[in-house]
Design a binder for these strands. Structure first.
Lengths: 341, 341
DNA sequence: AAGTTTAACGCAAACGTTTGAGCAATTTTA
DNA sequence: TAAAATTGCTCAAACGTTTGCGTTAAACTT
């Protein structure tokens, strides 16, 4: 049993027929006799024949591999998304190559090269939070490697993507806080480079003005999503002329940092200050005081959709990449969920 | 630029030399002239030549791919471990194929077949919580595919593995609770099939008896790690003749279920009941009351070590797989960390 | 100067599979 | 019954690399 795996050649030799006949027989080709087919399949079964994917890929010039580049696999949002990507790709017999940029633009560029040298047929990308140029991704078009962005998408035209519309979720979040009686609502937003930052901002403004409240720019402060900068942002808000009684934070990690720091500053959470966040972490629900609500971002769904789109792109290889307006833009409406306690 | 990637053949043709010369030139083979080498390398650079891995793998009969089978990628412990596996394998230019069993033994068997058909060179495995037979993994030995288990390891001899020694961590945990004055300490343990269940049990007994306290078997109840069964286990403990004032839970997920249910039962956490858990979730630290301490399990380190071992196994292909006692057994001592608040 | 070494390269097979083209029998058609 | 169509199979090339073995010409021996 320590022998090498069975090959088509071996089967052919044993049966005294040619390799091409065996190959066709296994594929139920019309021009092969039924008896021969039966014999071949029987022997293949007995020998536990498994087609050598490497050989097939070489011969077909395909790798049946897609790549995924994302900031941090250990972040709950991404591991769930990858879980979906794996599941979806698996069904189509695609192999998934995962790589983490750790939010480093230089590493991102390196990874794109790596992906190219691995001959991935397509790429799923969630860009790093500080990435400002997307040229390294866009260059792939020249190699006919389609790219589908998900969640953290670049703010440029003519791309395929699936993402949550953070605007609607933010509107819901602000409305929710307004209904609870809050009038001075702060926001700890993300880096300006991120599309989601703009959407949250728009949502905030939209909700405020629609409720006939004036929009106070000093209540929105951006941060780079690190713990340190979150602390600064929180303090800035707490020291604002109009001190907020509620804050919408960019995501759950930021919320955690804020919570931690607020405790240190002896701010009474849920009395002096209520938080609403975006659901990146599943167990925030179990936490004692905070946040009161979260905007769901559907990581599994996003991963699934993005993979579906990529598969579609791969199977309808429109060499006319210049077709204008032919871009997938799947927008999932985010949704506010009140955290039960 | 939409042309196919450059090949050795193409380079050879342009330069009017043979493909073998080009290949050797690129590998700095001794028998190629310096001027030729220079010319080849220059042109390769210009054409953005990248070796076709598929062709190399076929020719060498290797895939440079390792597989990972684990229960649930979205669980924090595993996503962190995979993060380490990716990073480590990446450096050795190996490709990682990930698959989730969702704790289903049947699916696990299917995945092993899938991995075999993908010709993985080795496998990293964390077994499902209900898996009782390990034959599907052990069969891989016959195909010369080494298997390294990590974290959730089978309780059978002659395997390679890296895992945390839960016994020491448990001893520390129980000692910690004893020092805090607790005398009646309960334990919500895992399924009997899991090795870690036995270790936790041994640690518990060991800590109690070493402290001259008698071991009361009714204080250890096992559960299947689901929310429902955790609730049952908690109630069983709370209704026990000797009602525990502290409980060691199998992991953070179980702890969360227990916390949730305890609140519902109006049990005052941290007054009537203190919890110690095992660190699967990073942000348990941010939670308000619970648990008071966690046993760290070093997911990144485990993933790293396991990959290192597999790499070693792959490069020292001892065809004499029957060498007795030649098995890697890396045991990481678990460690109690008190959760600061 | 004839023989031997060395340097630099080419030839061809191999890895396992797919596929267009070809060929020999058998069956169908007119 | 001869020509045409069908059936069932084989040949050989191709995908991009690597590598053992040859081959040639130049450089070195004595």
């Amino acid at each position: 049993m320590q022998s090498k795996p069975a090959t088509i050649k071996a089967i052919a030799q044993i049966l005294g027929i040619s390799a091409s006949t065996v190959s066709r027989a296994l594929h139920d080709h019309a021009s092969i006799g039924l008896t021969t087919k039966a014999k071949v399949k029987k022997l293949a079964e007995e020998l536990n024949y498994e087609p050598n994917q490497t050989a097939i890929f070489l011969q077909k010039g395909k790798t049946h591999t897609i790549g995924v580049i994302l900031p941090e696999l250990a972040e709950d949002f991404f591991s769930t998304a990858v879980s979906a990507i794996e599941d979806t790709a698996y069904k189509k017999n695609y192999t998934v190559l995962i790589a983490q940029s750790h939010d480093d633009e230089a590493k991102e560029k390196l990874l794109v090269e790596k992906m190219k040298s691995h001959r991935v047929e397509g790429l799923l990308v969630s860009v790093g939070k500080n990435t400002s140029s997307y040229q390294h991704f866009e260059d792939l078009k020249k190699y006919n490697i389609p790219v589908v962005y998900f969640d953290r998408i670049p703010g440029i035209p003519n791309i395929h993507y699936v993402a949550c519309n953070m605007e609607t979720g933010t509107i819901e979040a602000v409305n929710y806080l307004l209904r609870k009686g809050h009038r001075v609502i702060g926001m700890i937003n993300g880096p300006q480079a991120m599309v989601a930052t703009g959407e949250r901002r728009e949502g905030y403004i939209s909700a405020m003005t629609k409720n006939r409240l004036k929009y106070d720019p000093s209540l929105i402060v951006s941060c780079d999503l690190t713990e340190q900068d979150t602390q600064r942002a929180l303090e800035q808000l707490l020291n604002n002329k109009r001190k907020p009684t509620a804050i919408v934070t960019f995501n759950d990690y930021v919320a955690l940092f804020a919570i931690k720091h607020a405790k240190k500053l002896n701010v009474k959470l849920n009395e002096e200050l209520e938080l609403v966040s975006y659901a990146n972490l599943p167990l925030i629900n179990y936490m004692d005081n905070i946040p009161v609500a979260s905007v769901e971002q559907f990581p599994y769904l996003q991963g699934q959709k993005a993979t579906d789109i990529l598969m579609d792109l791969l199977h309808h290889k429109t060499t006319a990449a210049s077709e204008p307006g032919a871009f997938y833009k799947v927008i999932i409406e985010s949704q506010l969920v009140e955290n039960k306690r």
